[in-house]
Design a binder for these strands. Structure first.
Lengths: 376, 376
DNA sequence: TAAGGTTTCACAATCGTTTGTGTAAATTAT
DNA sequence: ATAATTTACACAAACGATTGTGAAACCTTA
């Protein structure tokens, strides 16, 4: 008769889950054999393996990841920190990361900084204490220095930034080519016949907004148009600030005939204000945003916007992490993966009725998608 | 001189993080003292405690959660599974959960079932293997039986369902009063003078859609209106099926003068189709949806919808989990927390210009919010 | 048949904590 | 002053897995 795990007279005793020791006892072999059989080690005979597997299934054995991680010094936990999970962009990126991670046997621990650098620090400590195998992070809006990330490096935990990164430091990162997206969008507005293109920008200490502004400026310059400071407004790009910004622009002696916003919420605000003043979009003012949020296809007219390739960013971020893990010793070489954005031209910027956005061949896109730049 | 952790001739050797053993050695005390000092145990003198704390800070000691969890048999990991993370509802609920969990010292492992019961099973196993302290889950659309959740119960891991639950089983759950939300909305449409109110419903094997339909039927009955099967269409409530459903309804001999959709995407589709046919909203057909997605405030006219109190649901779900943990032995008593939805009346259903939606006092809302039903 | 190789498995240490028990010394009570 | 209690700490055994080392048993080859 098989040995029982519990005395019959103590049925209500807290049951411990079945462990390798239980399997070993039942089968009359050592724990070594169990462990190696389960991990398909070559030194275990096929008959023994079968027996172990069968018993494991029968007793519904679940390996304890914690114990394994403790012993091996490597867990299958992956830390992911975003400013916030709500909103299409980060949710999609996290979706991409989680899907890829799950396939590779990792569990993701998700946390939010709520755009607060203090919370960011706390989360980082927590993740380290949880012995994560790596940390994937998009920094908060209030993060301006790198100091707390040094600790991660000190603990030799692979660290990958995505989208919002700290520049000027040697970091691994996956970013969007924000400059190219902005450049293409601005060029599109100009090609539609607009001559005074305004820009609603975000906080310039963040890489993404800096480069979106730069792309805007570059496009103007390529068309021989001098930048006009009065056409460039900076805010946190909410619907409200979009309205205010648009109002301010309309009050200019020479109001713009197009607006390129670094975010979709702001461009929605601009649209609302234009309508409330009885102006037509795109005839009077053409609009274009950034992020390709769901709302862009719901407004009237629908909004032109730049897609940030959220899912790809998630996948690429996880892939970069695995590369770091595999690289092992040389793990901390610093790489950047640059994803190419895609402009979606919609009615809010289509004056001529002709979509002038440049076609990109699928092959070229595939090439661009995972372009890797190496520093050092 | 202080003892060194590494031989000087092996500087490139992989550094292990500092452990309690290191602190003990450095201070010349036992690990017991270190452990108890760090957890503020009464049997450790204040002077010793200070010394330990100081050294810990100095050496940047990070406790190893895995080891502690292994020893204690209880981790500070919380498993959260949703059908998908994208979209306002689940993202907000997860936000609420994560925020509350983080405050209580838990880390959340997030995973997605992608509406697939097979993936759901896999995720469940993974979470168990990760030794989570509890599992919070909203079941996938394709889940129709309870079997794989039995395993969780067998492992004595607290299990809480939210929003989408399996009924007829003894489970802990946090749900929205979908019936009340639907009832209130339908009643509102009737109060606006509508007489033929159609319903776009979801899969009826899911509790949420079943109750939304029930609320719709109850409101009709209370107004002495006999339900008309030809006015009730069921689908997965996408924009596309919303359009198709609306088209089908308009082709009826007696088309409806209002539509209550169990989801916002479908009502958007309906709106698009009505516009394309030159019909006016709400004059010709009034519209109301469910979920209070962001898009509802962007369309023209804005869409009336039922808010699901996502954040509160997240908080309540976590709170129910902690209650189960504290209840310990009697942990598996089955509770249900029912949250009260809130109807947001917008232009798509306002015919009279008068918002007839019932006012709820803040006090009453507070009361309703955390009403707890006990079974058994 | 002896030397060498391969297959199959057990021993025991180890990862970093926690905690029941034991025991001095210091404090208080009788 | 002795007994009883409290304070402050150490010993050592867990938790559940992994893995280097060693050693039988079996097979191969000369």
């Amino acid at each position: 008769m098989a040995a029982r795990r519990h005395a019959k007279n103590a049925p209500s005793e807290a049951v411990r889950p079945v462990s390798m020791a239980d399997l070993a006892r039942e089968l009359g072999v050592s724990m070594t054999t169990i462990s190696r059989a389960l991990s398909d080690h070559h030194s275990i005979g096929p008959a023994t393996k079968q027996a172990v597997l069968k018993l494991a299934k029968k007793l519904n054995y679940q390996p304890n990841h914690l114990a394994a991680a403790l012993r091996k010094g490597k867990s299958k936990l992956l830390g992911v920190m975003v400013p916030y999970i709500e909103g299409r962009f980060f949710a999609s990126v996290v979706h991409g990361i989680e899907t890829a991670a799950s396939k590779a046997g990792y569990s993701v621990i998700m946390c939010q900084s709520n755009e607060d650098v203090v919370q960011e620090r706390k989360n980082l400590d927590n993740l380290l204490r949880a012995q994560v195998a790596g940390i994937l992070v998009s920094v908060s809006r209030s993060t301006t220095d790198f100091h707390h990330f040094e600790k991660v490096r000190k603990h030799h935990v692979p660290l990958v930034f995505f989208d919002r990164i700290l520049e000027g430091n040697d970091v691994n990162a996956v970013v969007l080519n924000d400059r190219a997206g902005a450049y293409q969008t601005t060029k599109h507005l100009l090609a539609q016949g607009c001559r005074r293109v305004a820009h609603l920008g975000g906080p310039l200490h963040m890489n993404i907004y800096k480069y979106r502004r730069q792309g805007y400026l570059d496009a103007l310059q390529d068309h021989g148009i001098a930048p006009d400071e009065s056409l460039m407004l900076y805010s946190n790009l909410t619907v409200e600030t979009g309205r205010e910004g648009m109002a301010q622009l309309l009050d200019l002696p020479e109001p713009p005939d197009a607006v390129f916003s670094a975010g979709d919420s702001a461009v929605l605000g601009a649209l609302q204000l234009l309508k409330s003043r009885g102006l037509r979009v795109p005839e009077d003012v053409a609009l274009a945003g950034f992020s390709n949020e769901a709302l862009t296809t719901v407004t009237e007219p629908q909004l032109t916007s730049v897609d940030q390739r959220c899912e790809e960013m998630g996948q690429a971020t996880f892939r970069l992490f695995t590369e770091l893990v595999e690289a092992e010793g040389a793990a901390f070489s610093n790489r950047q993966v640059v994803l190419q954005p895609q402009l979606f031209v919609r009615a809010s910027s289509l004056r001529s009725g002709v979509d002038d956005s440049p076609e990109i061949s699928p092959q070229e896109r595939e090439l661009q998608k995972h372009r890797v730049l190496r520093r050092n």
